[in-house]
């Protein structure tokens, strides 16, 4: 039998707390660290309005000092230019790499919830536009995704 030498699991859940507010819950659990994040993002600006973090397991007596640093993220907008750099520079470097990692994971999850979420609603109501039209509209709503990947680039150029 071959045993694992390292394992990390990340679990993210996104819910609508209100029509204009996402609530993200993230859990990271690996051989060394256990941590959780809860934060709220207000629409349409996608601004982080509240954030809480909790350690479950950590490796040094200094790690708990990373928790207050999370409050620096309040007021940041997840689609603003340089958001990832800001998370790495402040939440990671002044706090903790693993909280930064989990925050970015949750923000990515919010991005795709905002991007694809309505598609499922349209399908349920059997009123879905075609995929191309849907993506074109969503790329207007979230301009930072324009040209960000093969899929998004093709919809902009109309290929």
């Amino acid at each position: 039998m071959t045993a694992l030498t390292f394992s990390r699991s990340k679990l993210v859940g996104i819910e609508y707390l209100a029509p204009d507010t996402f609530l993200a819950h993230g859990v990271l659990n690996d051989y060394m660290y256990g941590l959780e994040l809860d934060f709220e993002v207000k629409l349409p600006s996608f601004e982080i309005v509240k954030i809480e973090g909790e350690w479950k397991r950590y490796t040094t007596p200094e790690c708990p000092k990373a928790i207050p640093t999370l409050q620096r993220a309040v007021g940041w907008r997840i689609f603003e230019e340089g958001f990832r750099r800001k998370v790495n520079r402040i939440i990671w470097r002044e706090g903790c790499e693993h909280f930064a990692n989990l925050l970015l994971e949750c923000c990515d999850a919010i991005k795709w919830t905002a991007f694809y979420g309505e598609w499922e609603e349209f399908k349920e109501k059997q009123s879905a536009p075609n995929k191309k039209e849907y993506l074109r509209k969503k790329l207007e709503d979230i301009p930072s995704l324009q040209g960000s990947c093969l899929l998004c680039a093709s919809k902009i150029t109309g290929e």
């Binding site: 990340k10 993210v12 609508y16 996402f22």
Partner: peptide
Amino acid sequence: MVLSYTRNKHISTIDCE
């Protein structure tokens, strides 16, 4: 509330011979 989105990501390593 029911979740609008879930993500489950797993990373693992195995040392080979």
